[in-house]
Design a protein around this nucleic acid. Structure first.
Lengths: 331, 331
DNA sequence: CTGAAAGCGCTAACAC
DNA sequence: GTGTTAGCGCTTTCAG
């Protein structure tokens, strides 16, 4: 910067003003400085600027994984909005490992991100207080169980998602529905389903609930196979899967065991991941507004950065919607 | 840091030595300093350290998109390896927008990443020279067409992937195969298929090639529908899709038009994304070693950071493998 | 093993 | 409008 200044016959300060586009430089001076910059191939050093300003134009995002369509869409949307605002994304993944999450948190905070977004159900609640004391805006998103009341959180009404799925099944006349879910993670969704059935005086016996850990298609398939005998013996006409990925596996298992969807058994999931629309049959599901969630959370953070103010705890609950496709039919 | 030093009765330098774990501090002093750090809740400021050392423990990754299973797995693997080495990930997305790619590039370089990885077919080749002159290691990965010979690139033998797909079809006795591809992006893959057929004196007429832009399931479906009449009239027994996503859409279209897979038409894709194994029927494909690619590229960069040396241009070509499942059968 | 001094590249107040 | 003077928080010589 000093080289540029000398070459243009000004001081570093003037160069700084030109680089940052401040409107306090005469056109003539500006031209000289810009010429010098071009000749020297000067590039400002953001690290030095950050040290001086205390700002990095970077926000951190801690997310359980990125290899799942739900999160990859969320991350993509967050990055898009950040980039549109000249911010950069420092992405950290936890894979459900709490120690790793804490390391990532420490790494991001000491790296002075201007804001931090945390997704998933990790209770990092108490650990983020240092950041907040430093005045760094923090928000939570995709928080499924027990959203803390100390931080702003932008999430989805997962209970309602379950309720919508259950009600859809009820409207089709299903009385006997089995549940295949990643428990306890998705207990809220299952609670929603139960509430929908309870409204008509029905319930889901405990042994009609199958666990699909990891919420993967594989575990859905495996749980589906375990469920088949019961489906047959108990005259169950519908299966609720707590996730589309699980539902896809369940459908495959049912088919492999000779059950037709939706003639013999209806299947509904939650999420609306891209492949659900192209499954065979296409999957009826409850769409989670993930991109909207990403936008609102990022927007909230960006606003907090622009006009610093204490993180007012707030809860934004986004509404899911049923997407009726071919995997569900009359009982 | 000064506060900690005073409280422990030492100088900043000693605190720095303790924080960085240098083995030059007496246990007694170390204990005092650590106590002071704990009492004051001191956290080192990485920005200041970066300014002093010229190192950020951060690597940038520019990628076309993250909402596609191929890239999301690559990104996940890169992040895992970086995190294991105490590095952080600055992720930038281009969405095929060259101007955006250049902005991202400038943003990352001025932010002083310690290394840069670029995925996708953007010819950022000439634009990265400033970085390289700064001594920042740069590598390319997932480079499908014309890998530049000026930079290290870790990619996959896409031509071989196509060739393997074509040979698999030949071995099943298919003489007449149609192609549904995202062209021109995947021309190398299609070239591989053609080479496999040519070995037996066969070829793919131009009007047996259908375009599926964006390589999405939707465009695969749409292209599949366009192809159906030809498949029937020309007695075509197999379809090569340049991507699993496309193949999934194609399968759906064929089914919707009454063609059975693989009895009437075999379908093979390339990639081996997770959902291919759970499609109906499960998709025969050529697995691209994306995670290995991610590991090798990241490892290369990390090694260059550790022992600075000019970016020796090198080309690492990883080998794909056929995964035979249920969507392909005898002609 | 510890301490003092200098500086990484930039921005923030002021004065001129 | 432009120049001057201090730092931002840390690491790095080099003495002791």
């Amino acid at each position: 910067m000093l080289d540029v200044a000398r070459r243009a016959g000004v001081t570093k300060q003037t160069v700084s003003n030109v680089v940052r586009g401040r409107q306090v430089v005469s056109p003539a001076t500006r031209a000289k400085v810009e010429a010098a910059i071009a000749e020297l191939g000067y590039t400002p050093n953001m690290v030095a600027r950050s040290l001086a300003t205390g700002t990095t134009m970077t926000v951190g995002f801690i997310v359980p994984t990125i290899a799942h369509p739900f999160y990859s869409e969320v991350v993509e949307e967050v990055e898009d909005l950040l980039e549109a605002n000249d911010y950069h994304l420092l992405l950290a993944t936890t894979h459900g490992d709490e120690a790793r999450a804490l390391r990532q948190l420490a790494g991001l905070s000491s790296r002075s991100v201007d804001a931090l977004l945390v997704a998933g159900d990790f209770d990092l609640g108490e650990y983020v207080t240092p950041l907040r004391e430093q005045g760094i805006p923090v928000a939570l998103c995709a928080w499924e169980v027990d959203p803390p009341d100390s931080l702003p959180v932008v999430t989805i009404d997962y209970e309602k998602a379950g309720h919508l799925a259950g009600r859809h099944l009820r409207e089709l006349g299903h009385d006997r529905v089995a549940v295949i879910a990643d428990l306890p993670a998705h207990r809220i969704r299952v609670g929603g389903v139960r509430r929908a059935l309870a409204a008509d005086g029905m319930s889901v016996p405990e042994d009609w609930v199958f666990s699909a850990p990891e919420a993967s298609t594989e575990s859905g398939y495996e749980a589906g196979e375990r469920a088949v005998p019961l489906l047959r013996s108990a005259g169950i006409t519908a299966v609720f899967a707590s996730t589309d990925a699980i539902a896809l596996g369940v459908m495959q298992a049912l088919r492999d065991h000779g059950l037709r969807i939706p003639q013999d058994v209806s299947v509904v999931g939650i999420d609306d991941i891209p492949q659900s629309a192209h499954a065979h049959p296409s999957l009826t599901t409850v769409a989670l507004p993930k991109r909207q969630m990403a936008r609102e959370a990022t927007g909230l953070l960006l606003r907090r950065i622009a006009q610093p103010q204490p993180d007012v705890p707030s809860l934004t609950l986004l509404h899911p919607e049923v997407v009726i496709r071919a995997s569900s039919g009359p009982a």
